[in-house]
Nucleic acid binder design. Sequence first.
RNA 1: GUUCCCUUCGUCUAGAGGCCUAGGACACGUCCCUUUCACGGAUGUAACACGGGUUCGAAUCCCGUAGGGAACGCCA
Length: 474
Amino acid sequence: MTVVTRFAPSPTGMLHIGSARTALFNWCYTRHVGGKFLLRVEDTDKARSTPEAVEAIFRDLKWLGIDWDGEPVMQSAREARHAEVARELLAMGKAYYCYCTPEELDAMRAEALAKGEQPRYNRFWRDRDPATAPAGVKPVIRIKAPLDGDSVVNDLVQGEVRVPNSQLDDMILLRSDGTPTYMHAVVVDDHDMGVTHVVRGDDHLNNTFRQKMIFEAMGWTVPQFAHIPLIHGADGAKLSKRHGAQGAMEFKEMGYLPEALCNYLLRLGWSHGDDEIFTKEQATQWFELTDVNAGPSRLDTKKLDHINAHYMKLADDARLAGMVLERIGSTDATHRERLIKGMPDLKSRAATVVQLNTDAQVYLKDAPFEYDEKAAHTLHDHDAHHAMHYIYDALARLGADFKADQIEAALKAIADEKYAGKLAKVMMPFRAALCGTMTSPPIAKAAEILGQGEVMNRLKAALHWMHDHGHHHH
RNA sequence: GUUCCCUUCGUCUAGAGGCCUAGGACACGUCCCUUUCACGGAUGUAACACGGGUUCGAAUCCCGUAGGGAACGCCA
């Protein structure tokens, strides 16, 4: 039997990071067994669903490299079918009309709660003659839940879960306006789509028993379930707004690569021995639902950073340069060229594209520019002023041979002759003048990439600045 | 309140009764490398929630306790 899975998001906003992981687990498992991975958009909540959100979810999934089989199913288009199944259940005597008003239901719940019982419907209309129904009340259709015994689900992640049927409510299948409830729509759709494995967040574990009632009442095969724990924030509480980023796109904005996010998300709650870094291909080769942990796991951005840094090193230089340029909204050809040339040194030290962007500033500005506090402090130095002149003269003489090793040799010569071999005396002012900051990629290489013209401009600007701002005497 | 789920270093995890003096990764500490910041290399600190069983033997099986989470809508 071919495995069929589905990912069923509600299009009420961005793709949540937790949903992204659920989608990833579904996808990985399905590719592992060579099944079909379907998409279903649960847009029955018309008030909250938007077409933009639908597009955003598709876009985010694609960004993560998650592809799906066939056309996505729009749940809203299937309402007639949902109603049909509800009426079938009615005809089979497995469901019934209920004429209670929302006010009456509220009262029942309050009463049950007061008695220390689970709040639920008291089954008033379950065996009552519909002929006695109050006039003018549009009924809902409720399922007849089993009255005694236990229900059991063998969950692929959680193991055997047993719940007393006394806990099950005669839940509503079809609302008084004829629209299906979520619980009902999910079951009908999962069945009609031929879903064999339902992989979803464990907040649905309890719902499984309600949904199972419908499958069984219809005589349908109940799919296999795998309830994966939700992701929690660093403090162990369920991921929410106060934890910061929640949307997959927010992680993109924070500078994470999709392949790194996928690797991290997959490793969160699932493991294959001690493997930490793996490709999607390896993951699909290894992934088993039974290897997913039953306990919830916390999002750790430090580890994400580490994994991202790994993938940054592997990433193509031009691709990374494009990301930096996209961030600052630039299409400057010179900047792109410099970035690509400097990328090997840049990407080896940055954990995220945001850091990459910061470090790349050397290549993205033109003299004269501002010096940050530390750079300004360095340039205020008396020796630095002298050094700057030596550097300027030495590099001006380099001419066509403006290569990193030539530049470095020239700077070392100055250090040897003037500063007793103390390289920092030359390098640090040079760095300050070239970058405006005291951290940068290897500065001689950066100078080569910048080219002699731009380097001389920056040195000149630094000399002007030093002249204007005076210097400290030591 | 009722029902259900969860619990190994700070974090993610390995672990299927003896391979466990509990392994790996991130983070943290120290050292090395080094013109800055990083990378990298080496090394160290650090955990089986608690209490009972079962067993020759338990992180692993069972029961209880504690703590955390979820569900209980004419929301999804």
